[in-house]
Computed example of a mutant assay.
Amino acid sequence: MSNLDEVDLQIMRATQAGLPLTARPYHAIAEQLGLSVDQVIERMRRMQELGVIRRIGAVPNHYKLGYRFNGMTVWNVPDEKIDALGERIGSLDFVSHCYHRPRHLPLWPYNLFAMVHGRSQEDVDRQIGQIAAILGQDNLGADVLYSTRILKKTGFRSK
């Protein structure tokens, strides 16, 4: 993090608990730190390019939205097809995140992960069936890891 200066660290501290919940969060940060909105946006963009900030996005609490049934589906698919299959699965409206993970043979043959959310167990089961249908013969095995509680998600914390 040697490419960061004190202003970058101030922006990180101001946003480490999340962006302000206002219609214009970058304006609120700029006002709080005595910077211009353009400065805040440009510095955050640069921190993303440096890999200090991985991404900026909303992190909904699915439980509060009524989606109390959640499952991380894990799939064993051919490695040479994983990118195309992952894009198809990740584009489904009920999949919140989808990614490629390494296998850990012989115990863990799964390489495609997709998190699904539903208002009922039946919703989740139906979604899993839809993914299985899309994968078709490329589904070489699957499992589901169901959520039993919500974990607090936090980002980077600076001192």
Rank of each mutant, 00 (worst) to 15 (best):
L4D: 02
L4T: 06
L4F: 04
D5R: 09
V7I: 15
V7G: 06
D8C: 08
D8L: 04
L9S: 03
L9T: 05
R13K: 15
A14K: 07
A14S: 15
A17D: 13
G18Q: 08
L19D: 05
P20W: 01
L21P: 00
T22W: 00
T22L: 04
R24G: 00
P25A: 01
P25E: 03
Y26G: 07
Y26W: 05
A28V: 05
I29M: 01
E31M: 02
E31T: 10
Q32R: 14
G34D: 02
L35A: 02
S36G: 09
S36R: 09
V37S: 00
V37M: 07
D38V: 07
Q39H: 02
V40F: 00
I41Y: 01
I41Q: 11
I41F: 03
R43D: 05
R43T: 04
M44G: 07
R45E: 04
R46D: 03
R46I: 01
M47R: 01
M47W: 01
M47K: 03
Q48Y: 00
Q48F: 00
R54K: 12
R54E: 03
R55F: 09
R55D: 15
I56G: 12
I56P: 07
V59I: 14
V59C: 13
P60T: 12
P60K: 04
P60A: 13
K64I: 08
G66S: 11
G66Q: 08
R68V: 11
F69G: 02
G71E: 07
T73D: 06
T73M: 13
V74Y: 03
W75H: 14
V77F: 10
P78R: 06
P78H: 10
P78D: 08
D79M: 15
E80I: 10
E80Q: 12
K81T: 08
A84H: 10
A84E: 15
G86H: 11
E87L: 15
E87W: 06
E87G: 08
I89M: 10
I89A: 09
I89K: 12
S91W: 06
D93N: 14
F94M: 09
H97A: 13
C98R: 11
Y99C: 11
R101G: 15
R101T: 14
R101C: 12
P102T: 11
L107G: 12
L107W: 12
L107C: 05
W108P: 08
P109D: 11
P109S: 10
P109V: 14
N111G: 12
L112W: 06
A114H: 13
M115Y: 13
M115E: 13
M115W: 09
V116A: 10
V116Y: 05
H117L: 11
G118P: 10
G118A: 08
S120L: 09
Q121A: 01
E122T: 06
D123A: 04
D125C: 03
D125T: 07
R126V: 05
R126G: 01
R126L: 07
Q127I: 07
I128F: 06
G129M: 05
I131D: 09
I131W: 03
I131G: 07
A133N: 14
L135R: 06
G136C: 14
G136P: 12
D138R: 01
L140F: 06
G141F: 05
A142F: 06
D143A: 15
V144S: 06
L145P: 00
S147M: 03
T148Y: 01
I150R: 04
K152W: 00
K152E: 07
K153L: 10
K153Y: 00
T154Y: 02
T154W: 00
T154L: 03
K159N: 14
K159T: 13
K159S: 12
K159E: 13
